[in-house]
């Protein structure tokens, strides 16, 4: 059974992650596609964003909101290449 302090700490991380998601949606990005989850004591932030500038904004927001926490990020920029083949739908 966890100590009460640990429980509070755990809840605190959950709420901080929730606030991060709220902020990403509410601010300049309107970003709902970035996922932030608590895994093994760290916060994992993943997703695809429309531009390099959006990625920088997401990462800055993550640093501000989750300051002091272990954070792993894998946020990539959408690819704009032309497809090299089509799918045949007989």
């Amino acid at each position: 059974m966890s100590e009460p302090l640990d429980q509070h700490s755990e809840e605190n991380v959950e709420y901080r992650v929730a606030h991060l998601r709220d902020r990403l949606a509410a601010e300049e990005l309107g970003e709902l596609g970035v996922r932030a989850e608590v895994r093994a004591g760290a916060v994992v932030v993943t997703g695809t964003v429309p531009s390099a500038q959006c990625r920088e904004t997401v990462l800055r927001t993550v640093r501000e909101e989750l300051d002091g926490l272990a954070v792993h990020t894998d946020v990539v920029v959408a690819e704009n290449a032309t497809p090299d083949h089509a799918e045949e739908l007989p």
Partner: peptide
């Protein structure tokens, strides 16, 4: 009926192309 999710983060291209006979 075939369904395709063409969200850009899913297809990882500017667009996908489907050939319908």
């Amino acid at each position: 009926v075939r369904v395709r999710n063409v969200a850009q983060p899913v297809i990882r291209r500017a667009f996908n192309v489907y050939h319908l006979n």
